[in-house]
């Protein structure tokens, strides 16, 4: 790990200001992803701003019947909240499908959204990776790409976003509150970017912008389901996952961002079958060889998840 200076922030605006003033500063909250990457010298901030004790750890009811989740709420406490369990079960299912108990106890809502890809070449500092070292090339294109993206990828990068939680937040139409000089609210769907020619730029946040909360509108009507397929039964990254809530749908582990399946939703809304819906969404899907199975996997996974959500919605 390379040397860095450290400060503990006492308020969100001050933290954002400190980040804007320090070149190469990073916020640290739970640290479960950042410290791993710092040990490998993939991340090497010169200054850490510890936001872990900012007063952003509450889950509050909003006037419209939704919830405002503070950015420092841990994954464990978010999944344990009675209101979340009763009204947003897809979010609970997604959170408990990620990481281990120890990691979820430390990982925060804001940090979960900003975790970085698990692509093996991003982690292997002896190999080219456009995300780690822009312009160096993408080793996954012709390499071990079994876990690479099948949707929205580019010739510069076929890495996937690893979050389960963010997939559920995507179909719940979550909004992300951000502070800096100018506070703003971003739809979750606009927080993460597709790789294009700049895969090292992963979000629409600017330097010094700090996520302070995630706001959920009231839940959509209908059943909610999160299904994740992986190489072992627990504590493994997803190969593909799907979140369904009412007529909404999103995929995880198949793209550079949580993949909201708007085409599939439109087919379902028009009275099409789940199989027709997934076929429409996956029409532009592309494999790089070893990840071809992800396309087949989603074709099988999605109709089951949609039917499960529908039967739950009927109270079955």
């Amino acid at each position: 790990m390379r040397p860095f200076s450290y400060e503990r922030a006492t308020d969100a605006a001050g933290a954002a200001k400190a980040a804007a003033e320090h070149p190469n500063a990073k916020f640290i909250a739970g640290g479960t992803n950042l410290l791993d990457l710092m040990k490998l010298e993939i991340e090497h901030p010169a200054h850490l701003i510890d936001i872990g004790r900012l007063p952003l750890a509450a889950i509050e009811d909003t006037a419209d019947g939704g919830l405002r989740i503070g950015a420092m709420v841990t994954n464990s406490r978010l999944a344990a909240d009675e209101r979340v369990r009763a009204r947003y079960p897809v979010l609970v299912q997604a959170i408990v499908a990620g990481g281990s108990g120890q990691l979820r106890n430390k990982a925060t809502t804001g940090g979960n959204l900003l975790q970085r890809t698990r692509c093996a070449y991003f982690y292997d500092t002896t190999k080219p990776c456009n995300k780690r070292l822009p312009g160096s090339g993408c080793s996954a294109l012709e390499g071990l790409n079994r876990n690479s993206a099948i949707l929205g990828a580019s010739q510069a990068c076929i890495a996937t976003h690893p979050s389960d939680m963010a997939v559920a937040l995507s179909i719940l139409d979550a909004q992300v509150e951000v502070v800096s000089d100018n506070s703003r609210t971003i739809p979750l769907e606009d927080l993460h970017r597709l790789p294009g020619d700049t895969p090292h730029i992963e979000t629409s946040l600017s330097a010094g912008e700090l996520i302070t909360a995630v706001v959920l509108p009231p839940p959509p009507s209908g059943g909610q389901v999160y299904r994740k397929v992986r190489d072992r039964a627990s504590y493994a990254a997803g190969l593909a996952s799907v979140a369904v809530a009412g007529g909404r749908m999103a995929f995880g582990a198949v793209a550079h961002k949580p993949w909201r399946a708007h085409l599939a939703e439109a087919v379902l809304a028009g009275g099409g079958s789940p199989s027709e819906a997934i076929a429409a969404e996956l029409a532009p899907a592309r494999s790089n060889g070893r990840n071809q199975f992800k396309i087949d996997l989603l074709h099988r996974l999605v109709p089951v998840a949609v039917e499960t959500a529908r039967s739950q919605g009927r109270g079955a």
Partner: peptide
């Protein structure tokens, strides 16, 4: 490396002492 911090289990390898 699991320890209890304020009664909650975490991985002590993925945490800085200063935190």
């Amino acid at each position: 490396c699991t320890v209890l911090v304020n009664g909650v289990r975490i991985n002590s390898c993925l945490s800085l002492a200063v935190m």
